[in-house]
Amino acid sequence: MVNHNGTLFSPEDAQLNPFNRGLLYGDGLFETIKAVNGKLLFWEDHYFRLMASMRILRMEIPMEFTPEFLEEELLKTLTASGLIDQTARIRITVYRSGGGTYLPEERGVGYYAFAKAHPNPFYLLNEEPYEVELYKDHYINADLISTLKTTNKIVHVTGSIYAQENGYDNCLLVNNEKNIAEALQGNLFLVKGTHIKTPPLADGCLRGVIRKQLISIIGLMDEYTFEEASISPFELQKADELFITNTIMGIQPITKYRKKEFTIETAAALLKKLNVKVRLG
């Protein structure tokens, strides 16, 4: 079922206004959330990221857009989809309502949400081969807008097609300063010895929810040092480990980049601690 501004529709009956600004101009934002037995994982982080992003895009946030209201709408969507007592991924898209051209006629918003079943309630370690390559046809801008989950993800779309056509499991995106910003579906972490680093937000990477959780986890582990610092393509083949993070898969180890193969021990250790946060949260 699709929840459009609080009204539930079947996918066949749901309709999108042809003048929808999210469609015409990418004037929208989205959050993809993992839900387990009616619980939205890391909901507070998702909610505040969405609110902050709406402010950055100069959208007027409705008074009713409280954490409780939006959570209830998402749970209503899960229930209508028969997924309230299962594991699911649910996406909410917020778009600027009204018409106009580049200049909106109004600043208010609308929203729609839908859910799909997901097989795993907890994050599992994927030990299968996972190869990546750089995607350099188009670059990510090292700016604030790139850190938001906007509905304009054309670089990620074309990069995903490139990866599929060339037999890669994922690609790493380069910013306009020629540093690694992120992967197609998440944030990148690099491990060298006992030192872990991830690109800073200033490099244009997504303000990831699992990125935030891992930074917190690593900060409590005496065996590692950590920094947010730019990663150049030359560093990738010198690393001991590379892994990708996002809300749905948790942590995905990279096993190969060009001729270099990587271990997965750090990713495995961090994944255990991430699952503890899921259980306790």
Rank of each mutant, 00 (worst) to 15 (best):
V2C: 04
N5Y: 05
N5I: 08
N5R: 01
G6Q: 15
G6S: 01
T7M: 05
L8Y: 11
F9T: 10
F9A: 10
F9S: 00
S10G: 11
S10Y: 02
P11C: 15
P11S: 15
P11K: 13
E12N: 14
E12Y: 15
A14S: 13
A14C: 14
A14E: 12
Q15T: 14
Q15F: 06
L16N: 08
L16M: 14
N17L: 11
N17Y: 12
N17T: 07
N17F: 13
P18S: 13
P18A: 11
P18T: 12
F19P: 03
N20V: 05
R21F: 08
G22L: 11
L24K: 14
G26F: 07
G26Y: 04
G28Y: 07
L29N: 06
F30R: 11
E31S: 03
E31H: 10
I33E: 10
I33W: 07
I33M: 13
K34E: 01
A35M: 08
A35V: 06
N37L: 05
G38W: 03
G38A: 00
K39S: 11
L41P: 03
L41T: 10
F42T: 09
E44P: 07
D45I: 03
H46D: 04
Y47N: 02
Y47G: 03
F48R: 09
R49F: 04
R49Q: 11
L50H: 01
L50E: 02
M51V: 14
A52P: 07
S53D: 04
M54A: 02
L57S: 02
L57R: 01
R58S: 08
M59L: 12
M59R: 06
I61C: 00
M63V: 13
M63Y: 13
M63A: 15
E64C: 10
F65C: 05
T66L: 01
T66C: 02
T66K: 00
F69H: 06
L70E: 04
E71K: 15
E72T: 01
E73F: 04
